[in-house]
Every structure is written in C-alpha cells, then in structure tokens.
Design a protein around this nucleic acid. Structure first.
Lengths: 182, 182
DNA sequence: ACATACATGTAAATAGTTACATGATTTC
DNA sequence: GAAATCATGTAACTATTTACATGTATGT
C-alpha cells in the first residue's frame, strides 16, 4: 500500500489538504503507517495529473493558503480496485529486537537503559491509542479495530517486558559468566 | 540498524557465509528483520574492504564453493560501538491495517477473505516462533526474549481477531446501511 | 520434468526519508 | 526569545528490493 493509495483513502473519508492528511496519520494511525511531507506532496501532485483527485485553493485568514483536495469518481474507482487486490501483508522492523538479540554483548547498564526506553515508548504508544479510542467518536468500525489491534499488541508486549525485565537481566549475566569461564 | 551491522552481529556469534547469514534470519528472526541476497552480498564485500571482516574460501563436495566470513577485532569493536549508540526504535507497516481502516468500503466477502488471510498468517508465524523456541537450544537469552516477544504480540492479536471477527463484520454492515440511508 | 536447496553476485528500479527553503502566527 | 503550528514544495540521498545471471544436486 503506497502513499498514493493512502491519500486516495483519506480523501474517500473527507476533503483535505496534504498537511491535514499527514496530520491524520500522525495523530491516529502512526502505529501502522508512517507518512512524511516529502512523499505526500509529490503524491498529491501526481494524483492530480492523473485526474484521480482535484483541488481548490482556499485562502485563510492569518494562515497560509491551502490546497483542499477532493477525490474524483475515477480516483474512487481506482482506490476500490486497489483495496480489492492488495494482499494484507505486513512488515515489522525492530532495532530494539536486534539490540536484545545481542544483549549478551552489552553491559548491564546499557541493557537496563534499552529496556526502560522500550517500556516508555510502548507505554506512550498505548496511552495514545487508548486516548484516541475514547475521545474520538467519528471513527469507522474498521478504524476502531486498528486501534484495538494496536492496543492488544502493545498491552501484551508491555506485560511481557515488565514481567521478564529483571529475570532476563539475571539470565544474561549468568550467560556472560558462563562464556567467560570457558 | 542496517544490513552491515546485522552481518557483523551474526559473525560475532559464529563464522558464516552470506547464504548462512540470510538463512539464519529467514528461519528464526524474520518476525523483526528481513534480509535479502541483494543487500547481504554487497554488505559483506564492503565490510571486507573496510577490514571489519575477513574470509576464507571453502571448497565443498557436491556443493558450490563458499566464502566463510569471520569478524575481525576491528569489526567486533565497530559492532559494539553501534550497539552502544543505536536507539531501540521500531517501525511497523501494515497493509492489513490499511485495508481494515477502509473496511466499510469493501464487500463482506472480501473482508471475510482479508480477515481469514491475516488469521492464517499470524497463526503460521506463531507456530514457527513456538517451534524455534522449543526445538532450538543454542539460543542466547536475548534471542529467546525476541521469540517470546513475537509470541506475546501474535498471541494477543490472534485472540483479538478470533474474538472480534464476527461482531466486526456486523458492525461494518450496520455502518454501511447507516450511510446508505442518509 | 519441476521445484527446491545450495551458493554468489550485479544492476536497475523503487520508494521512500531527510534536509532545505520560505514565512506568518501563536503559545510558553 | 524560542519553539510549535500551520502550510507547500523540491532535491539529494539512502537503503533496499526485485529481477537477472549461472550452475550442481537432490527430492517429488
């Protein structure tokens, strides 16, 4: 699912500027999809050239002008076709896990720091997701599901980290001593 | 954490060929890190030029020759420095979640199919992780932890999908009818 | 006969991210 | 006085994937 389709999808929900599209993903769906200005503006320009979106320029008081994009019937069809074809694949890349994989090479203090950072980040993410789920009432059932999904995954790994944190440090220390003796 | 460091890390554990490094990640740690030949061979060549790894060519019977790489003391130091500096960041990108986000635009049959595919994939992943965890005894405590982490996350989302699968389809159908009436 | 495992490597294409450029307004 | 929010856009860079090229041996 590329940035073009994410723009089309968002514009199926409501008209929006590039800035607003980015804001929406950053605020509510960053747990499964990143977006940056450097990709969103060229994407909207390209979609406009292809006739899949149109836009009107809106002047604002005390704010810069904005380009408000709307999806065209062709854009809607194009997006629908993509939804019907796209496979539900996933990719996860974690530096935290790579660091943990080589935990036995690190001093205890550094490991403690890595664990604490990860616990903080997952906790923060969890609070954000819960916050959106509670406060926002304009969500579709599918959107609510993505929040539930994030909450379930984050809750589970947070519980694991809190439970295994201390024992793990001991196991690693024991492993390091075992290696030294040989 | 780039491919160079993944190679150095693997070679801290044992000498290996490019093929073997890829196999190790593919077999046991693909749940948080992808590797492909197109990135691994150039990376090893570069590391060799920099003096961070060395290699010997090994002839094999009934098999092509292989280049067996070893980490040098400089390589070990370089990898350690990186482990000390790398932040435990994570990125997750999910087409499944994007599809679910726009579930209200899809026919029930397609939604059913997406859900079933995701359930199968998560189940399969879970079985693989449990399999490695049980059968493989040469894992460091940190590696075991990465498996536990994957098991925890996948178990939680699988439970969620099984529990919310049917009710969600009904909620979405209701939402679609609500839209039509307006 | 066909697919898979073993084994290495290159080149083109993809899909981004990061940094830069600009500038008003508001909040701390 | 600094940082954040609003707002759009470009260009260089990075990292990686995909496809191609080559070849043996084994299993189905």
């Amino acid at each position: 699912m590329d940035i073009n389709n994410l723009c089309l999808g968002t514009l199926c929900l409501t008209d929006a500027s590039g800035y607003e599209i980015k804001k929406m993903f950053e605020d509510s769906f960053s747990h499964f999809q990143a977006v940056s200005f450097g990709s969103i503006y060229p994407a909207l320009a390209k979609l406009s050239d292809q006739g899949l979106v149109s836009y009107r320029e809106e002047a604002q008081e005390k704010r810069p002008n904005k380009k408000v994009f709307s999806i065209t019937p062709e854009g809607r069809q194009h997006f629908f076709d993509n939804l019907m074809q796209t496979e539900p694949s996933e990719q996860y890349r974690s530096d935290f896990m790579v660091l943990m994989m080589f935990a036995h090479l690190l001093p205890e203090q550094r490991l403690e720091q890595i664990m604490q950072t990860q616990i903080s980040q997952v906790s923060a993410e969890l609070e954000i997701l819960k916050g959106i789920s509670e406060s926002c009432c304009e969500l579709t059932p599918g959107m609510r599901f993505t929040l539930e999904y994030g909450i379930a995954a984050n809750t589970a790994v947070l519980e694991l980290m809190q439970r295994r944190h201390k024992p793990l440090l001991k196991e690693i220390a024991r492993h390091q001593q075992g290696k030294e003796k040989r």
